[in-house]
Amino acid sequence: MRRMLTKAAGLAAVGVLAFVTAQPTQANTLSKQPGHAAAEGSAYFVMTDITREEFVIKLTKPGDIEHARELVSGQTTDRPHVFTRIVKRQAPYNPRWSYHNSPDNTEFFDQAFEVCDATIPYVEDYLDEAGGAFLPGLAWCDWTSRLIREIPAP
């Protein structure tokens, strides 16, 4: 019974996450507002969490890049946490970890479902289980994540 409930909760969470990520985000509309310059190309940011480990994310959507820069500069505190889909392989810009974020599937949030919450090192430790009951759909939303700085492209 418990296994069935776990699977049902995981499937429901993935469905809700798919719906949430399909909706236009406020960050995507920022670049269309007057006074907001559109960011071009990719940008790289260091995030941390409660463990104080550091993880580099790559952003490609202009609205997300602008929102990330506003978070780092302190211009906003809205949607401070990172939601992404993980890719189970190392990236040149994030060599310490065996996984990286999917830039086209990265957004920011205030609150999210528990099924996608995990710290940076916990994801690394259980990466082989990600995509199943752990981080269904490879959706990752570290509730304590926050951006701390922008770094140059590698």
Rank of each mutant, 00 (worst) to 15 (best):
S73I: 02
A139Y: 15
T48R: 09
P95H: 07
A112H: 14
T48Y: 08
S31P: 04
T48Q: 13
T60I: 15
A37T: 12
I65A: 00
E114T: 11
T25W: 00
Q33M: 13
Q33Y: 05
T144V: 03
L71D: 01
K61W: 01
E40A: 09
H81Q: 13
Y44H: 06
G35V: 06
S145Q: 10
E107V: 12
Q75Y: 00
D64F: 05
K58W: 02
P136K: 12
F108M: 04
K32E: 06
P34A: 03
Q75D: 15
H81S: 13
L138G: 00
F55T: 08
R96T: 15
H81N: 13
K61H: 05
K58N: 10
I50M: 07
L30R: 04
T76I: 05
H36W: 04
D64K: 08
T84Y: 06
M47N: 12
P95E: 13
W140F: 13
P62F: 00
T60Y: 07
R69N: 14
V72M: 08
D117Q: 04
G74H: 11
G137D: 06
S73W: 03
F55P: 04
H67A: 01
P80H: 08
A13I: 09
D128C: 06
I50N: 11
T51V: 11
D128P: 02
V14S: 13
V56P: 05
D128W: 03
A9I: 11
Y122I: 00
D104E: 12
F134L: 04
A91F: 08
R96L: 14
V72T: 08
G10K: 07
D117K: 01
D104V: 06
I50Y: 02
N105V: 06
N94Y: 08
L127W: 02
E70C: 06
K58Q: 15
D142R: 07
C141K: 01
R85D: 00
F109Y: 15
H36C: 01
N94H: 06
G41M: 04
A133I: 05
T21I: 01
D128A: 15
A37R: 12
A8F: 10
I120L: 08
H100C: 14
E70M: 15
C116H: 08
A8S: 10
N101C: 10
I120G: 02
W143H: 14
E54M: 03
S73T: 12
V115R: 09
E129W: 03
K88R: 15
I50R: 14
H36N: 13
R52H: 15
V87Q: 11
L127V: 09
